[in-house]
């Protein structure tokens, strides 16, 4: 197992470097660099002073160096936690701390809820294959995958927030609140985005869990277990589900990356101050420092979840590491 992990880490390295080159490359394509932005902010300066400032800034941001050196410097800075500056001069890490916290909170809830529901529903659908219950969830997942996320979000806002006035339409709780009341407000603000993201995520995973379970229930060892006279409960939960868990684990972990990357739309619809909506607003404000950092973060999450998926797969299915 240890050897497999090491091997997997080694294959991760080139992928990581390729990723970093792509992201760095994109950052070099962005129109308007830091020097231009800073100069534009100091437009009142005299021409001569502006020239001095330009030279000083070019040196400061290392724009006088050739591109490969800049890449190395950027990589080194990134590893030491220096992700550069935003347009208004704050460190990117500081600007992104709050959105990152919010995104993680939101996605943790979504993952937990959607995992629980999809496992319960998936197993029950597989057991009741072809019955009304199964049909209902088949339709649900079909509708869920066909529905644009923002449509779900807007409908929820329209019905729950605007017409029934049960929950806020979006945004974050007031910073002046403290303690328990802040937490309650946070929950109230989170409910609609969580439902939206969960529906989107459930639509895919329920179907996946169900198919994995159906597959497991068709295996010979299930017939054996049944013929031994084991109760249906033991057969389903102990024999079938354990084996169905393999694909379930992979799909669930694999979907984490997608959740983080895909919540731009949901976060924008609900004005949730997370990474996704921050990305959108940063692009609109041409704040490339933030854009690159968010891209880097989501890419890292992707790589990490891919890696964990593989390891998990190998853990539960020893055949994997042999091939």
């Amino acid at each position: 197992m240890f050897k497999y992990i090491i091997k997997r880490i080694f294959t991760l390295i080139p992928v990581f470097f390729a990723m970093s080159i792509i992201i760095f490359g994109i950052s070099q394509m962005t129109p308007g660099n830091m020097v231009d932005i800073k100069l534009a902010q100091n437009a009142s300066l005299k021409q001569a002073d502006r020239e001095i400032m330009r030279i000083a800034l070019t040196k400061k941001y290392g724009l006088d160096k050739p591109i490969h050196e800049r890449y190395v410097i950027w990589l080194k800075n990134t590893f030491t936690g220096d992700l550069g500056e935003t347009v208004d001069g704050k460190p990117v890490t500081q600007a992104l701390a709050e959105p990152m916290k919010n995104t993680i909170i939101l996605n943790l809830f979504v993952i937990l809820i959607s995992l629980t529901i999809s496992i319960i529903v998936g197993i029950k659908s597989a057991v009741k294959k072809g019955k009304l219950y199964d049909r209902f969830w088949q339709v649900f997942s079909l509708v869920g995958t066909s529905m644009p996320t923002f449509f779900i979000g807007i409908i929820l806002i329209f019905i729950v927030a605007i017409n029934l006035k049960l929950l806020p339409t979006g945004g974050m709780p007031s910073v002046r609140l403290e303690g328990l009341s802040y937490f309650v407000e946070l929950l109230r603000h989170m409910i609609l985005p969580i439902i939206t993201l969960t529906i989107g995520s459930l639509a895919g995973t329920v179907r996946y869990v169900r198919n994995a379970m159906v597959d497991a229930l068709n295996q010979d060892y299930i017939r054996t277990a049944r013929s031994k006279g084991l109760s249906e409960k033991v057969v389903v939960y102990s024999h079938a589900f354990k084996n169905a868990l393999i694909p379930v684990v992979t799909i669930v972990i694999g979907s984490i990356g997608g959740l983080f990357a895909g919540s731009s739309i949901t976060e924008t619809v609900f004005s949730w101050n997370g990474l996704g909506s921050r990305l959108v607003s940063a692009i609109n404000a041409r704040d490339w420092g933030i854009v690159m950092a968010v891209n880097l973060f989501t890419a890292a999450i992707y790589l990490l979840t891919n890696f964990i998926t593989d390891i998990a797969y190998a853990l539960v299915d020893p055949r994997v590491k042999l091939s």
């Binding site: 294959t11 390729a18 129109p31 990357a261 731009s264 996704g276 692009i283 989501t298």
Partner: peptide
């Protein structure tokens, strides 16, 4: 490996970034 790189590219953020640049 190349396809792995492409899947590791966070789809929506990159799409948004690229199309805006």
């Amino acid at each position: 490996r190349f396809s792995e790189i492409v899947t590791s590219i966070p789809f929506l953020p990159l799409l948004i970034t690229l199309s805006s640049i």
